[in-house]
Design a protein around this nucleic acid. Structure first.
Lengths: 115, 115
DNA sequence: TAACTATATAAGCATATGATTATTTATTCG
DNA sequence: CGAATAAATAATCATATGCTTATATAGTTA
């Protein structure tokens, strides 16, 4: 088994606290499979747009995710350069794939694509 | 890489929330190395005995830890039969060992041993 | 049994958290 | 430019969290 760099307990606790919310944990799992823009998250969760925005801000402030504006939309994705990137991958590895949710969006024509 | 049973997102978020507290995360790391009784935790943390007790109760209520009375003392240890045992091991794997703290207790003659 | 030690529980309190609605800011497009 | 869309921010609020002190409970021991 691979052994990684030692992680600081307090910083790790803060990351775990962020992941310790059902909405954010699901968001992170989704982003591990697809990048996603805010309005897609709004469609995926039964929650107001500001609530989504606030969850994403916490993830962004911690450095876990990146944001990238593309035109009208802001896309969020896991920050692969974060010191916690591989830790997070390990934590979410066995969570059920959320790809079906994004596929449902596509089926409904709600998927945003900027290519 | 080993792939384990899929974990439920909401239940996993609840476990992560429990681990997302510096005190509890440290406790869990300590218990992964040594079982520990309440008064030892009280010596190890700068916190009142009831605060320690309340953290341990949350861990116990979630099934993450076991308690075992031995005489006057109640020892807490990781519950190896918990559905989240291997998940937790993975999460805490790269945290710095807390064994030195328990060794300090031993050096101060504060280590409880019921053998 | 009484005193002592270990732990749990109760009550109270300050702060954190996660949501809402209202509003602002940024971008696109007619 | 002005309307429409996307997202962020501000203000507010109810509930959760983590601690404290005080007290109760359980076990040990003289």
């Amino acid at each position: 088994m691979q052994t990684n760099e030692a992680l600081d307990i307090e910083a790790t606790a803060n990351v775990l606290k962020l992941l310790g919310d059902k909405t954010r944990l699901t968001m992170v799992k989704i982003m591990s499979e697809h990048e996603c823009c805010v309005c897609e998250f709004v469609d995926l969760f039964d929650m107001s747009q500001p609530a989504i925005s606030q969850h994403l801000r916490k993830l962004k402030d911690s450095g876990i995710v990146n944001e990238a504006r593309r035109g009208q939309w802001i896309f969020y994705s896991l920050n692969q350069t974060s010191a916690y990137y591989s830790f997070i991958q390990t934590v979410i590895k066995d969570l059920p794939s959320q790809a079906f949710k994004v596929e449902e969006l596509t089926a409904q024509g709600k998927r945003i694509c900027c290519d």
